[in-house]
Amino acid sequence: MARTTVARRPNAGTKGVPRADREEQIVLAATAVFGSQGFAATSVADVAERAGISKPLIYNYFGSKEGLFTACLHRAGAMLAEEMERIARGDAVGLERALRTLEGIFTLLEPQPWIWRLFFDPTIPRGEERIAAEIAHYTDRITALADEGVREMMRLAGADDPLDVSALTSAWLSVADSLVSWWLDHPEETPASMTARCLRLFHVVLGAPLPSALTAD
């Protein structure tokens, strides 16, 4: 379970540390704790202990547990979206872009798998305005990238039905989430081996012949 081991930083957050550095230190620690234990099971004291600082310092910087969680979502969402955008700017198209995206996510998450779980934690107080806004922002940003990739793949196949694009985008987002979640439950898989597994799975699914009843027309 090497991927989920979090090193503690004793004596961090001492006097003289620049505010920006101290905030980053707290967010890094909080992301690991929230992502591993869940929002409801995590206390500010847990984060303070992991970061090696005092509880009042966290409240001074972030105002509340919810404010701290919002900062964690912002960092995690930006990292995921920026990695996907980096791949989108490259030359890969169609299925290759899909695989490169998954490979990028696996590589990004390997040293910090907990950041993926932040967005799917069932104990998140989604009625809290800041948290809901942060989740919505990055969900929209990532969905737009998925829609762009699917439209590109559909055009390559000579298809452009808007409802087909919508349906396939929804399916792709679910497939990607399922594959990443499965991988997080199998820490023996490296990013390279998981990418190879995805390629095999896609080959099986996409290479399978359609049932005769569907090809008759």
Rank of each mutant, 00 (worst) to 15 (best):
79 M>L: 14
99 L>A: 10
150 V>E: 05
102 L>K: 05
71 A>R: 03
65 K>E: 01
156 L>R: 13
146 A>K: 06
108 L>G: 02
119 F>D: 01
67 G>Q: 02
82 E>C: 09
130 R>D: 08
121 D>W: 06
67 G>D: 03
139 T>I: 03
147 D>S: 09
107 T>S: 12
126 R>D: 09
132 A>G: 09
81 A>E: 08
143 T>Q: 13
103 E>S: 13
137 H>W: 10
148 E>G: 12
91 D>S: 04
103 E>K: 07
145 L>E: 10
114 W>M: 07
89 R>K: 14
71 A>M: 03
153 M>F: 14
165 V>P: 05
119 F>T: 01
147 D>K: 12
134 E>Y: 06
132 A>N: 09
165 V>Q: 11
79 M>H: 09
71 A>C: 09
164 D>N: 14
125 P>N: 06
75 R>V: 15
115 I>N: 00
120 F>V: 11
122 P>Y: 02
125 P>R: 02
91 D>F: 00
64 S>T: 06
65 K>Q: 03
75 R>I: 14
103 E>C: 08
159 A>D: 11
85 E>R: 14
144 A>R: 04
136 A>C: 01
125 P>L: 04
65 K>V: 04
164 D>T: 12
74 H>R: 14
147 D>R: 11
76 A>I: 05
152 E>S: 13
138 Y>H: 10
93 V>G: 08
93 V>Q: 11
78 A>K: 15
139 T>M: 07
113 P>K: 01
127 G>N: 06
98 A>M: 13
118 L>C: 05
165 V>A: 15
101 T>A: 13
153 M>Y: 15
136 A>N: 00
126 R>E: 09
101 T>S: 15
86 R>S: 10
110 E>G: 00
145 L>V: 10
74 H>T: 14
143 T>N: 12
125 P>Y: 01
94 G>P: 02
107 T>N: 05
71 A>Q: 05
166 S>Y: 13
136 A>F: 00
117 R>Y: 06
84 M>G: 02
155 R>K: 12
81 A>Y: 07
166 S>G: 11
91 D>E: 09
85 E>I: 14
81 A>S: 11
138 Y>Q: 06
59 Y>G: 08
67 G>M: 05
87 I>R: 00
106 F>I: 02
83 E>I: 14
80 L>K: 13
63 G>T: 04
116 W>S: 05
160 D>M: 12
82 E>T: 14
69 F>N: 00
83 E>C: 11
137 H>Y: 13
76 A>M: 04
152 E>P: 06
81 A>I: 10
135 I>D: 01
109 L>W: 04
130 R>Q: 12
67 G>R: 04
69 F>A: 05
89 R>P: 04
132 A>S: 13
77 G>K: 03
135 I>R: 02
141 R>A: 08
132 A>R: 03
123 T>R: 01
146 A>W: 06
60 N>Q: 15
113 P>R: 03
116 W>E: 01
93 V>Y: 04
79 M>E: 10
104 G>I: 01
59 Y>V: 01
70 T>E: 13
73 L>H: 04
